[in-house]
Design a protein around this nucleic acid. Structure first.
Ligand SMILES: [Mn+2]
Ligand SMILES: [Mn+2]
Ligand SMILES: [Mn+2]
Ligand SMILES: [Mn+2]
Lengths: 227, 227
DNA sequence: TATTATTTTTAGACAAATCTAAAAATTTGT
DNA sequence: ACAAATTTTTAGATTTGTCTAAAAATAATA
């Protein structure tokens, strides 16, 4: 068991986290430009930082080939995501924040350095498995509990499911969901699916609700088997 | 009511906090060297930062004359201290940290930027008035509840008091207090005071306990009137 | 394949916060 | 009051992370 603590700056941590998220989409290596856009910075800055991370063996990098996280880089990224999501859970469940208000604060809190703090916070929160947006919270060893989920837009008429997450976690979208009473845990049945524009008529809380394809593309449901 | 938000770097915030604490001792202005020692940096760095803070009207500064906090600088310093102490209270009361383990983590947490966060944390904690070391937690308006307290070393034989705070909050001293079962809230009676070295024999928990003058100089008691 | 367009890297500059070394101002001691 | 000691400031360098502009490599297109 390797217990070497690597000194990480706030900037380095944010880069690792962004690479982690982008690797889902850019499986064969995250491009400099993609990373620049995600980090809201310039490509030249990204190149500088990638060299630094590569020097520290946190990413694998060959010029013009994009980056991938190393084993160690991946594990650091996962720990930051663990912290981010635990803090988001704390803010919503204990401090009574709404789910659209917590991301920016968690962006700061995720950089607080103390293993003991996170372990005690996790215990205090009784080891939550999902953050307020339905995203899995990795455990202390970095394991994600993966849950079955499918994008609402891919369901068909007559299908049923339980809302378990959102793809877009922007405040604007979360507030749209609030206004339409869509929350995690809600049971949803697809009544109609419009071929023309992909909009859907749903049944939820015994009421009917129409949502656009754009919205349906950003809601995750866990399918419910209808015997 | 002035609501101008001033952008503060972590370093600027730490300087303001240090000046605030040193002003208690250096009433006619905090010297560059004193600040350098407190901040564990060089005098030249202090001069640079003082100029920057002076530029922002957070301190009053004249060359070679030392610094004092301005009205605005003072109010920012107090808000940082409020955050520090609220977080310390949270760490001890909710996350089950010991009082000697929380300072370094609070040093990080005090810089998290969100007024809403602190106001909700304060509410969650039910508006505590003292931190784990007995220091007062300023309210949202910056008012300190001042409590009657006197250094234990200044008490006389036969006097009685309740432990309400510590002057030295170092882990070493706090652990010494733990080993001797000295906690906030404990009732203490001074049985004997040795003229030679200032050490004291105390009665606490119906047991006798001898402590040095050094220790007695770092414990605050609230005097109890013995009619 | 040759040319053009795009992406990525390099080179050089900048702001923030720090440092060392030296100069200037103040304080202390006789 | 004057010299010595101390404190404080200035000058110039360094580190980190960023930027712009230009060069180099790769990808797309005709
Ligand atoms: Mn988030
Ligand atoms: Mn989240
Ligand atoms: Mn503290
Ligand atoms: Mn404290």
């Amino acid at each position: 068991m390797c217990v070497i603590k690597i000194e990480m700056t706030l900037s380095e941590e944010n880069y690792l986290k962004s690479i982690f998220h982008l690797e889902k989409k850019y499986v064969r290596g995250v491009s400099t430009n993609a990373l620049a856009e995600e980090m809201e910075t310039k490509a030249s800055s990204v190149t500088d930082m990638i060299k630094k991370l590569s020097e520290k063996n946190l990413v694998n990098y060959k010029k013009y080939q994009g980056v991938k996280l190393s084993e160690k880089g991946n594990s650091i990224a996962v720990q930051i995501i663990r912290k981010h999501r635990l803090w988001e859970y704390f803010l919503v469940e204990k401090l009574d924040f709404n789910w659209d208000e917590v991301h920016d604060i968690a962006e700061q809190l995720e950089h607080i350095k103390s293993d003991e703090l996170i372990s005690k916070l996790d215990k205090f929160l009784e080891y939550p498995k999902r953050d307020p947006h339905g995203d899995p919270i990795p455990d202390a060893e970095g394991n994600f509990a993966n849950l079955e989920k499918k994008i609402l837009a891919e369901f068909n008429e007559g299908d049923q499911g339980i809302c378990v997450g959102v793809k877009d976690s922007s405040a604007a979208f979360l507030q749209y969901l609030d206004r339409n009473k869509i929350k995690l845990g809600k049971s949803i049945t697809i009544l109609e699916k419009e071929q023309f524009d992909g909009s859907m008529i749903l049944k939820m809380n015994n009421k009917e609700l129409t949502i656009s394809k754009v919205a349906a593309n950003n809601i995750y449901l866990k399918p419910v088997a209808l015997d």
